[in-house]
Simulated assay, not measured.
Amino acid sequence: MSKLLQQGSGQAYAEVIGDPIAQSKSPAIHNFWLAKLGIAAEYRACHVRPKELADYLKTRRGDPWWRGCNVTMPHKQAVMAGLDRIEAPAEAIGAVNTVLPDGAGGLIGTNTDAVGFLEPLAKELAQTHYFRMARIIGTGGAARAIITALAGQGFTLVVAGRDPAKARRLLDELAPQGEHHTPHLSHFAAPTDFAFDDREGCCDLVINASSLGMQGQPPLAFDWSHAPPGAIAYDIVTAPLDTSFLKGARAAGFRTIDGLAMLVGQAAAAFERFFGQAPPREHDAELRRVLTS
């Protein structure tokens, strides 16, 4: 078992757990904010394999210095069985990305992915639209949070994956209201001559919620003729940050949002729960430079 599973750091700390974990940008984000605020605490990465998860939670329950952890793949659903209480966001999504001590030896699970995803869309979502539609590529853990978030904002959802039946099950579970659609992933790869109606007053999103386009993965084949005029392209992939999906969107004249937006947004919500202070978001531009250098 990793030596980081041992107790007794002598300093307040939070961490991110996953398998693998070396690629995580979360330590850089949280430690940047801790330094800016002068908080004597640390945020670190802890490699926890699936067979170690139960022991990890048992050990952290008894550590007075531990302020909580973020949870990444493959533990977001498995970790729920070891917790004492699940907060509403995580219960609705069906996955936990943040675990917190309750002060009495118990563990609380919550999820900040949905609020993090929505953060860069706040200006658009504050407006009134007569129709909202999101085309979501992917049916994995990230898609669960995104589907839940957008269903709550009144979007009609088009969820595309390699297995349309899985996409339908996700929608039936997470967004049972509304006329949502589940085309095969290949539907968006070929050009279309579909004549979009007048999109004035609409909000349209095209979201890559899959690992396609990530380093070591094939690119996402998406033809931008499928995107309505004025649509926003949003890719949650962070390595590379400027994916072929986003490059194609810009070339076609669409506004883009990259994966750091969601990553920093969900981290901000978790940071406040861990350390009792809101992170200094006035330094976001500097943080982005740190994360991309």
Rank of each mutant, 00 (worst) to 15 (best):
L4V: 03
A14W: 00
E15D: 12
E15S: 15
V16L: 02
I17M: 00
I17A: 05
G18Q: 02
W33I: 01
E42P: 00
C46F: 03
A54C: 13
D55V: 13
D55K: 11
Y56S: 13
L57R: 08
L57G: 02
K58E: 14
K58I: 11
T59W: 12
R60Q: 14
D63F: 13
P64V: 08
W66H: 15
R67K: 15
R67D: 10
C69T: 15
P74C: 03
H75D: 12
Q77F: 04
Q77V: 13
Q77S: 05
A78V: 13
A81I: 01
D84Q: 06
I86Y: 00
A88G: 04
I93E: 04
V99W: 07
A104I: 07
G105P: 08
L107T: 10
N111V: 12
T112P: 09
L118P: 11
L118G: 01
E119S: 15
E124C: 09
T128M: 10
R132Y: 07
A134M: 09
I146C: 06
I147W: 06
G154L: 08
T156F: 06
T156D: 14
V158Q: 12
V159R: 02
G161Y: 07
R168V: 03
R169Y: 04
A175D: 10
P176K: 07
H180N: 11
P183N: 06
L185Y: 04
F188E: 01
D193Q: 13
A195G: 05
G201F: 10
C202S: 12
V206D: 02
V206P: 03
I207W: 00
N208M: 05
A209M: 09
L212K: 12
M214S: 08
G216M: 09
P218T: 11
P219W: 11
F222D: 09
D223L: 00
D223E: 01
W224L: 05
H226W: 14
A233Y: 05
T238K: 07
A239K: 12
L246Q: 05
R250S: 09
F254D: 00
R255C: 10
T256R: 01
G259F: 00
L260W: 01
M262H: 03
G265K: 07
A269I: 00
E272V: 10
P279N: 08
P280D: 13
P280Q: 13
R281Y: 06
R281L: 15
R281V: 14
A285Y: 11
L287W: 02
